[in-house]
């Protein structure tokens, strides 16, 4: 058994928080590519990883959310795909203490698959395969597919990663809460998504982004009812709450952490943070659910 799954059998596993919003807070300018910092400012990226490990994370994600060849092409960086992913993996590996883990992050292509869009499933799968390969060459322990709003695209990433052989892959979709329940943007419900992903060999099933920690409690219950796989939940922070029709306000780390307790009680095995979270959120989270 993969040592991460073994850890998850015995305890709640803490994942890291956001990378993108933290990089912005560290001076990443508008229009700059976060992935480029893997070669331009590696020590800064490493510092962020270290802060998450020190805050109590057992797993951090590489700074490669947008480092697939399709997204990079939009920035004119597709020739750097392999380099950016390998370097990102090396940076995280170097920051990673003994006994902890590095997850190679795969994010959406930003394109729609055929026939609605122009990208073929084969091309998407191949692109993800190459990205996952570069991440493993750089030293990651597992692949973490995140923020997928299309089940079909998530499957492309899963198949692409699994082509490398017996590697551990987590697949996390992003759900919207509608009047009729939780659905991906493309209209896939929880049960269908989970059974499809499990059938295709996903080792960890998750949900991240879009929803804040409150909504994630409910979603976790539904995921738990649908699967026996380990569940990874990474809510956003900074989602607004409307009180009597006015005021939006930012969620504090301790509010986030208290929701995380309920997410754990609802059946999550692994919890981290998505957009808007930082090391402080992860520290409170680790304290609350440990």
């Amino acid at each position: 058994m993969h040592p991460l799954l073994e850890m998850a059998r015995n305890r709640i596993v803490i994942f890291d928080g956001a990378m993108g919003t933290v990089l912005m807070a560290s001076g990443l300018g508008p229009g700059e590519s976060p992935e480029l910092w893997n070669i331009e400012k590696p020590s800064l990226v490493m510092k962020i990883h270290r802060q998450y490990y020190e805050a109590g994370a057992q797993v951090v994600h590489t700074n490669t959310f947008g480092a697939n060849q399709f997204k990079l092409a939009d920035r004119g960086l597709s020739d750097k795909m392999r380099l950016l992913n390998m370097e990102a993996a090396k940076i995280a590996r170097k920051a990673c203490p003994e006994g902890k883990f590095v997850a190679g992050d795969l994010g959406p292509t930003g394109k729609l698959l055929k026939p609605i869009g122009d990208l073929s499933a084969e091309a998407a799968e191949d692109g993800y395969h190459k990205q996952a390969d570069a991440l493993f060459k750089g030293g990651v322990d597992l692949i973490s597919i995140e923020t997928m709003f299309s089940l079909e695209e998530a499957l492309c990433a899963l198949r692409g990663a699994k082509k490398l052989g017996n590697v551990l892959v987590s697949v996390s979709l992003t759900y919207n809460r509608t009047k009729k329940g939780f659905f991906t943007m493309m209209g896939e419900g929880v049960e269908k998504a989970v059974s499809t992903l499990e059938g295709a060999g996903a080792d960890i099933i998750g949900a991240n982004c879009t929803l804040g920690s409150k909504d994630m409690i409910e979603l976790t219950k539904e995921l738990r009812a649908a699967t026996t796989c380990p569940i990874l939940i990474q809510p956003n922070a900074g989602q607004p709450k409307t009180r009597s029709g006015i005021t939006t306000y930012k969620q504090t780390p301790s509010e986030f952490a208290s929701d995380a307790k309920q997410i754990r009680a609802a059946g999550a095995n692994m919890i981290g943070g998505c957009c808007g979270t930082n090391a402080e959120f992860i520290r409170e989270l680790a304290r609350a659910v440990a």
Partner: peptide, 15 residues
């Protein structure tokens, strides 16, 4: 808006 259809259907209609 009612959650009866999703983005793929909307996109086909838009097309």
């Amino acid at each position: 808006g009612e959650g009866e259809i999703f983005i793929p259907q909307v996109l086909w209609s838009a097309k």
